[in-house]
Amino acid sequence: MGLIIILLVGALVGWLAGIIMRSGGGLVFDIIVGIVGALIAGFLFGGGASIINAPLSATSILYSLLGAVILLAIVKVVRRGA
């Protein structure tokens, strides 16, 4: 059950980050961005700031969204440079 919640929240976070950064990715891309963004947030802001540890916490969702936006910004820079 926890994995399903993480995937759903990751998809939501990735979708919101995609809207903010205008990435245009699909559902699978959004889930990956959301979960990797959550891992980035956990690394940058401490383990409790990630949806991996507390998937339904407003704080962890906001930090994960910030991590996903950072990830999409990095992806845009890499794509532009290639």
Rank of each mutant, 00 (worst) to 15 (best):
G2C: 04
I5Y: 04
L7P: 00
L8T: 10
L8I: 08
V9N: 05
G10W: 10
G10S: 09
G10Q: 08
G10F: 12
L12W: 14
V13W: 03
W15K: 04
A17I: 02
A17W: 00
I19D: 08
M21K: 13
R22I: 08
S23C: 05
S23M: 07
G25V: 09
G25F: 01
G26H: 02
V28G: 00
F29Q: 11
I32Q: 03
V33R: 02
V33N: 10
G34Y: 11
V36D: 03
V36E: 03
G37Q: 04
G37H: 06
I40C: 04
I40P: 01
A41N: 08
F43M: 09
L44R: 03
F45G: 09
F45A: 15
G48E: 15
S50W: 05
S50T: 12
S50C: 07
S50V: 02
I52E: 12
I52D: 11
N53Q: 13
A54Q: 15
A54Y: 15
I61E: 13
Y63P: 00
L65F: 09
L65M: 08
G67Y: 05
A68H: 01
A68N: 02
V69M: 04
V69P: 01
L72Y: 03
V75C: 03
K76G: 00
V77H: 12
V78Y: 10
V78D: 07
R79F: 02
A82N: 11
